[in-house]
Simulated assay, not measured.
Amino acid sequence: MIWLTWRQFRTQTFAVVAILAAAAVYLLITGTQLRHSYTTDLASCQPQNSCLGLLNALQDQYSGPQFLAEFFVMAAPALIGIFWGAPLIAGELERGTHHMVWNQSVTRTRWLAVKLAALALVSVVTAGLLSLLITWWASPLDTIAGNRWGTRAFNARDIAPLGYAVFAFALGVTLGLLLRRTVPAMAATLAVFIAVQVLMTAAVRPNLLPATTTTVPINQTTMSQAERFDRSEAVTGPVTIDLPAPPGAWALSQTPALNSAGQPIQTSEILNCWSQMLAQGPPAFKGASSGFGSLGTCLAPLDLHVDITYQPAGRYWPLQWLETAVYAVLAALLAAACFWRVRRLRG
């Protein structure tokens, strides 16, 4: 059975090896260049304490290759499900070769077990190598950004792609078995995989672990770090202030500006302070001493605050493991459904 599986999928295997080799060469060369530039920029800017401009320029320089590399790693599980999973059984059913295969000395259960195990292992190894390469390559850019929680960053790093790959493969096999046609199964695999990924990212991942909520007072210090300040055109409208979450945390939600009673304040309550700030000149970029700091000084006596809900920085690896486990369980359930269905198909 192992020899038969190799004979049937050796072309795909050679193609994957070639793609991995090309990706490794490209990422190793450009990654070494990126690390050298990063180290050089840090060494040159430390005496003048002017790293921000240099590092931002470096980030912009590699933003294109980073996007393509992350997109490739995120697309790899879907491609595995489409081209490896969907044709595995659907192809046999379309060609009618399952009649011969399932009437040999090897039982259909063993036939399916060997194929699922062998190709699932190759899928995990492929995704793992790609993830390892992009995680190593992008580590200087991740350090500059200071945020590992973005969709592309989280989905294309560390162990999460392994769970995506095994799930996509099992999904393709299951849909191929149910639809009994390769092309419809491939299309359905792509659609369902994307839907599950969106659902996981938007609704499941933020709730895998209980979030933390903290109250941030509005004053000169916090407002100097504000990323955005929006006031409603109507005097009765809310005031929105985007304050940063704790370092390295994943900000999930943030309330508008609240008073000491926990009620949203109205725009009319801050108009005087807003006018005073504009009289001193327009606010500068985030973090500058001449940003929203003066507005915070004026607002401080009002005892205002913002509630921020977030996942702490230390939850990154637990969430990576939990999400991978969720996909592994889904893959196991799909594999069990395949065994149940195959045993009941007429050979």
Rank of each mutant, 00 (worst) to 15 (best):
S139E: 13
V106F: 11
L132V: 09
W111E: 04
W137G: 12
K115A: 14
W136A: 13
T107L: 14
D142I: 12
T135L: 00
D142C: 02
S139I: 11
T107E: 08
A117R: 02
L119T: 13
S139P: 01
R110Q: 06
L119I: 05
V122R: 01
V124N: 00
T126A: 15
G128Q: 11
L132D: 08
S139H: 07
W137D: 14
L116W: 08
L141H: 00
T109C: 01
R110F: 06
W137I: 03
V106P: 05
L116V: 13
W137H: 09
R110T: 14
L112T: 11
L121Q: 01
W111V: 06
W136D: 11
L121H: 02
P140V: 01
A113C: 06
L129A: 07
A138V: 03
L119R: 15
V114A: 08
V125D: 05
A138P: 00
W136M: 03
T135N: 03
V114S: 12
L132Q: 03
L130V: 05
L130Y: 12
V124K: 06
W111R: 07
S139T: 11
S131W: 05
D142P: 00
L132T: 14
L132I: 08
L132C: 03
R110W: 14
A113H: 08
V124H: 07
S139F: 07
A138C: 06
G128N: 10
A120I: 04
A127V: 08
V106D: 09
T135G: 06
S123Y: 05
L121A: 13
A113S: 10
P140D: 01
A117S: 14
V122P: 00
V125M: 08
T109S: 10
L129D: 02
V124E: 00
T107P: 08
L116I: 10
A138F: 03
P140W: 03
L119M: 11
T135A: 07
L133P: 05
D142E: 09
L133M: 15
D142Q: 13
T107N: 09
W136F: 07
T109G: 14
L119P: 11
V114D: 06
W136H: 06
T109I: 04
R108N: 12
P140A: 02
